[in-house]
């Protein structure tokens, strides 16, 4: 049971971070369907940093450096979407899809290059980071506390405050709802949209890092992040673009994802004799069902996906 809670929390943390990332981007008016790719790149930045950190650093420094690395790689990668969508008015869905294809590809190429440089025969796309990863974990009895759980909670609270209680949030949401209105009161729509996309890059990158460090101590980048970016999009939609709802939805989805890791521990579930693939599919099937029912009523930011053109009235 404890294990279920532990996995639920860690997977929920991933979903919270990434879904909030999507939330900021979409509130600014840019659809970010490339979260999956951003996650991979963020994870790559974090994993490589962990691998090359010298042993024996204080845990705090390790956490700071690794988080920073994944956040920055996520932001840089998200800039591709920002520049294409905001400066060149590209179709946001297409650019996002391109990011999703590009992200894992870059990761595999880079990791293989790094691996072969070290040993000619090693062509795997796996990064091992077992030692550094321990910095994130604190054992509380049999419960393995991960600092990312706390970070995700703090970011969730911060997002709520930023979106609803600050000038930045008010302006950001105005840009996603009615950019012409925002422009007419002197708000720079382009700047706000860049801000939204960059925040989504930062949170998406961080989410990717949390995902790969969730259970294992090495990551094979060929696997990408197994659709978690899309799952986060589903969480965002089910959460109706609101931080609190996103938090609750993420817990629900996180639990279904966690079940596939730990269902062996529940006699009742084992007795059902379902193949393990069923549990693996569960979160994705749930998200499909949820979206079918929710998306009709969904209140997406009105102007999302529409490139802003100052001249158009």
């Amino acid at each position: 049971m404890l294990l279920l809670i532990q996995y639920t929390l860690i997977f929920a943390s991933v979903l919270i971070l990434v879904a909030l990332g999507g939330c900021f981007s979409e509130h600014s008016g840019v659809i970010n369907i490339g979260l999956e790719g951003i996650m991979v790149i963020g994870a790559l930045g974090g994993a490589l940093t962990m691998r090359y950190l010298t042993a024996g650093m204080p845990a705090f420094v390790v956490i700071l450096l690794v988080v920073l690395a994944s956040v920055i790689s996520g932001m840089i990668f998200s800039l591709l979407l920002g520049v294409a969508a905001i400066k060149f008015n590209a179709d946001q869905t297409l650019v996002g899809t391109a990011l999703n294809l590009l992200g894992p590809a870059i990761a595999v190429v880079l990791v293989r290059a790094v691996n072969t440089a070290e040993s000619v025969d090693n062509v795997s796309s796996t990064v091992v980071y077992g030692q550094a990863k321990k910095a994130f974990l604190v054992n509380m009895g049999s419960f393995e506390f991960n600092w990312f759980m706390l970070i995700a909670l703090l970011i969730l609270i911060a997002s709520y405050i930023v979106l609803y209680k600050t000038r930045f949030g008010l302006r950001l949401c105005a840009c996603g709802e009615h950019p012409q209105a925002a422009d007419s009161v002197g708000i720079n729509v382009y700047k706000m949209r860049y801000a939204g996309v960059l925040i989504s890059g930062a949170l998406g990158g961080l989410g990717g890092l949390v995902y790969i460090t969730a259970g294992v101590s090495e990551w094979k980048f060929e696997n990408g992040v197994a659709g978690f970016g899309f799952l986060a999009l589903a969480v965002m939609i089910f959460g109706q673009w609101r931080p609190i709802n996103i938090g609750l939805t993420a817990l629900l989805f996180g639990m279904f994802r966690a079940l596939s890791n730990v269902y062996m521990g529940f006699d009742a579930l084992v007795a059902l004799k379902l193949p393990s693939t069923i549990y693996n599919m569960l979160p994705y099937i749930i998200s499909l069902i949820v979206l079918v029912f929710v998306s009709k009523k969904s209140r997406a930011p009105k102007a999302e996906g529409v490139p802003y053109d100052k001249g158009l009235r």
Binding site: C173, A174, E177, H178, A182, V185
Partner: peptide
């Protein structure tokens, strides 16, 4: 009208000249 439809009247009025 240049109004954000899902905002309150007050939010629309202060948008761009908010006091913080």
């Amino acid at each position: 009208f240049k109004l954000v439809e899902c905002f309150s009247v007050l939010d629309n009025i202060i948008l761009g000249v908010e006091t913080t």
